[in-house]
């Protein structure tokens, strides 16, 4: 039985992973903003076999509340073996281009809040010399693309932060898993027409759950995104800047 903290626990991807934790009989604490959704998610995984230590509403952008909420979670769980950070928002790129305020807010939600949470979690796990941190970033962080580079920049910031954190925590025996999903069919992407590249949250969850179990450092979800992003990263800039992606 692992003790698992999930932030952004009502996200479709996180909730699907939580079901796999439930099947493992793990002890779980859930955090997101919407209280009703937290309860619905907690009830579901409780029937599916999780021991739910509690849930708590938090706006991750209220950085000054992080300490108290994380302490509450750690207390309820009796320690944290695994922290999964999954919250996020996908802004409309065009709107960001017209509004520095919105751009800053999106960077806050998708990067600053996550980095702030990681800073506290890392400190505790380093002290206890055990644990694993898993964070959902995105393939969008691999290379800035005109269609969503504000979101991509936030994800890239977290990704780079995690790269450093992994090095630092390695000697303390604390693991860091970076999860880079491609297109997953969730409420976040409800407005998109779905094609062949799209995966279901359950499919994504299986791969993420396995990667966490194996202690993988970086995982693309589904697997083929690793290859797609390899091509995109290596496209010469002289060509890249001319195409629409």
């Amino acid at each position: 039985m692992r003790k698992v903290l999930i932030i952004g626990a009502t996200s479709a991807i996180a909730a699907a992973i939580a079901r796999l934790f439930a099947k493992d009989g793990d002890r779980v604490f859930l955090i997101a903003r919407n209280e009703e959704h937290l309860k619905a998610t907690a009830d579901d995984i409780a029937v599916r076999g999780a021991s739910v230590a509690g849930y708590r509403s938090l706006d991750v952008n209220a950085l000054d509340e992080h300490r108290a909420v994380l302490e509450e979670a750690e207390g309820a769980l009796g320690g944290i073996d695994l922290a999964l950070i999954a919250h996020g928002t996908l802004p409309v790129q065009i709107d960001c281009e017209r509004s520095p305020g919105l751009t800053a807010q999106e960077l806050q939600t998708n990067a600053v809040s996550t980095i702030a949470l990681l800073t506290r979690l890392a400190e505790r796990m380093e002290e206890r010399r055990s644990g694993r941190i898993a964070v959902i970033t995105s393939v969008a962080g691999d290379r800035g693309r005109q269609s969503n580079y504000v979101y991509g920049a936030a994800k890239a910031a977290v990704d780079t932060f995690l790269e450093g954190l992994r090095q630092r925590l390695h000697k303390s025996g604390v693991g860091v898993t970076t999860v880079r999903p491609g297109f997953i069919d969730t409420p976040m992407t409800a407005g998109f027409r779905k094609g062949l590249l799209w995966a279901k949250p359950e499919t994504a969850a299986k791969r993420i759950h396995a990667a966490i179990g194996k202690g993988t450092d970086v995982v693309y979800v589904p697997w083929f995104w690793g290859w797609i992003m390899l091509v995109i990263r290596f496209l010469p800039r002289s060509i890249f800047k001319r195409i629409k992606l």
């Binding site: 479709a12 619905a40 998610t41 009830d43 579901d44 029937v47 599916r48 409420p187």
Partner: peptide, 18 residues
């Protein structure tokens, strides 16, 4: 299909709400 959560189960009576 997104409303796919279990809500409660009574192990004595078999009553499942979902």
């Amino acid at each position: 299909r997104g409303l796919d959560r279990f809500i409660s189960f009574d192990n004595d009576t078999g009553l499942l709400r979902c």
